[in-house]
Each structure stands twice: as structure tokens, then as C-alpha cells.
């Protein structure tokens, strides 16, 4: 089949848009509360009001400005998700490298374990374990790290198994380098691009999962500006001010779409490069 090479222009525009969105969200997460010192000012007399010139997205039941709450809430929503993605990357890469490079019994055990964890509904397990364990947000992040890592384990394991019989690995082994050095310094850098792309995808998944947990009332306390929590608190206001509930929902979707698209794009770019 011949494939028509189309211009990459729309793709590039999309990638640039995703990167811009993510940069803005990162800015909000870092400096949001500092830039808007009055983000949690209440106006109980006003209550839930429709959007107008002073409150661009209206107010919630306590008369707090939705737009400012959303900016201030970027940190709580994104920081936990970033932690999950990075934690899963570290854990998944360590176990994946170990299993892929050593093979044999270690590989069998790690592989089985990853398969088992992958079959479990991660969100439900996190909900139950973190809820019963009473650890709140921190425990939820920890459990999600463990349940997200199997994807990374599988990915790194199979990538390492592809690499480990290539001449450069043999050369490094012949030089007498230790197995740890060969695995970390020689094999891992070649696997890294796919890992980075996958970490972005995990980041997107964690944004969705963590906001689901705060929607169900786990982790962040009521009234906290976390997007999932805002949505849960304001979903009774659909008649008074629909944007109070729909805007946080939209932001979660936008953040996750941007991360997913960027991850997919990176993945495509790296695998294409590897092929040519």
C-alpha cells in the first residue's frame, strides 16, 4: 500500500497548542495562589451567581469566584498526578529493567505480578485501600503509583528484551562492565524516549483518576479548590450557575487531552525515528 505523505502542519499546530495549554497550567500550578491572593474570598450575600463582568465564570454557593478557584486549584489537581506519573516511572523502570535484563525467575515473577495488577480496576482498589487505610490523599497517590507501574514495567521489559541481544550490549559485557552499569548506563538511555512518552500518558490518566477520587469525596477536604472536588461540590448548582460545575469538568478534560495528545505525538515521533 502506498501512503500519501500529508503535510505535517496541522499536527504541528496541535502539538504547539497542547504544549501552550500545559505551560499555562504549569504556571497556574506554580504561581496561581501567589498571583491571586484573594482567590478564596467569600461573598455569602451573593451566593451562586451566573457569570458577569466581575466574575467571569460566576460564583459558587459561598460566593467564591469560580475562575480564581480554578486557577488556584491547578496545583492540587496537577501536583498529585505528576507525582503518580513520576513515581510509576521510577518503580516501573526499575522493575522493568530488572526483569528484562536478568530474565529467568525474576522475570517470571515480575511479569506475573504486573499482569495481576493490570487486571485490577485501579480506581476501585485505590478508593477502597486509601479510604479504609485512612491515609487520605498521600496514601491514594501511593496506591496509584503501584497500580500505574505495571504499564511501565511491561513497556520497559519488552524494550530491554529487544535491546539486550544487540551488539552494543554484548560489547559492553565483553568489556567486563558490571550488569548494573550495562543495564542503567547502556540499555536504559535507548529505552528512555518511549518511557518519557508513556509517562505523559500516565500523567493524563492520573489527572483523571485523582479528580475522580476527589469527586467521590476522598482525599482533599470539602471546599478545597481541587477541580474534581469543585465539580462534586457544585453539581447541585446546575440551574443557578452551570459553569460552576461544567468549567472544572472542562478543565480536567482539556488538561488530560493535552497530555494524551502530546504523549501520543512523542511516542509516534520516537518510534518513527527508530524505524527509519
Amino acid at each position: 500500500m502506498t501512503r500519501v505523505r500529508r503535510s505535517r502542519r496541522p499536527g504541528r499546530l496541535l502539538t504547539a497548542a497542547c504544549a501552550t495549554v500545559l505551560a499555562l497550567l504549569a504556571l497556574a500550578a506554580c504561581f496561581g495562589t501567589a498571583l491571586l491572593p484573594g482567590w478564596d474570598r467569600q461573598d455569602l450575600a451573593l451566593g451562586a451567581a451566573m457569570p458577569d463582568a466581575t466574575h467571569w465564570l460566576g460564583t459558587d454557593a459561598l460566593g467564591r469566584d469560580i475562575a480564581q478557584l480554578l486557577v488556584a486549584g491547578a496545583r492540587s489537581t496537577l501536583a498529585g498526578a505528576a507525582l503518580v506519573a513520576l513515581g510509576a516511572m521510577v518503580l516501573g523502570n526499575a522493575l522493568g529493567l530488572l526483569a528484562g535484563y536478568l530474565g529467568g525467575r525474576v522475570d517470571a515473577v515480575v511479569h506475573r505480578l504486573a499482569d495481576l495488577l493490570l487486571a485490577l480496576p485501579a480506581l476501585l482498589v485505590t478508593l477502597v485501600v486509601a479510604g479504609i487505610g485512612g491515609g487520605g490523599y498521600a496514601l491514594a497517590v501511593g496506591v496509584l503509583v503501584v497500580l500505574t507501574s505495571p504499564g511501565d514495567i511491561r513497556l520497559v521489559r519488552s524494550a530491554v528484551r529487544e535491546q539486550r541481544h544487540l551488539p552494543y550490549v554484548e560489547a559492553a559485557e565483553t568489556l567486563g562492565l558490571s550488569r548494573a552499569t550495562v543495564a542503567v548506563r547502556h540499555i536504559w538511555p535507548n529505552v528512555l524516549p518511549v518511557v518519557v512518552a508513556n509517562t505523559l500518558l500516565n500523567f493524563a490518566g492520573a489527572v483523571v483518576s485523582l479528580s475522580a477520587l476527589s469527586f467521590l469525596g476522598l482525599g482533599v477536604p470539602p471546599g478545597a479548590p481541587d477541580w474534581g472536588r469543585l465539580l462534586a461540590d457544585n453539581r447541585t448548582l446546575l440551574y443557578d450557575n452551570p459553569s460552576a460545575a461544567l468549567a472544572p469538568a472542562l478543565l480536567i478534560v482539556v488538561a488530560a487531552v493535552a497530555l494524551n495528545l502530546l504523549g501520543d505525538r512523542l511516542h509516534e515521533a520516537f518510534t518513527d525515528r527508530g524505524r527509519s
Partner: peptide, 16 residues
């Protein structure tokens, strides 16, 4: 990608 990025409670709320 969009449906993957949309938590069920967000799309549910929009549908309601």
C-alpha cells in the same frame, strides 16, 4: 483521546 481523557462524572454531568 477525548473520551479517554474525560472522567465519567464529567461527561455524565455534561449529558445531564
Amino acid at each position: 483521546v477525548v473520551t479517554l481523557s474525560t472522567p465519567a462524572f464529567a461527561s455524565g454531568l455534561a449529558l445531564i
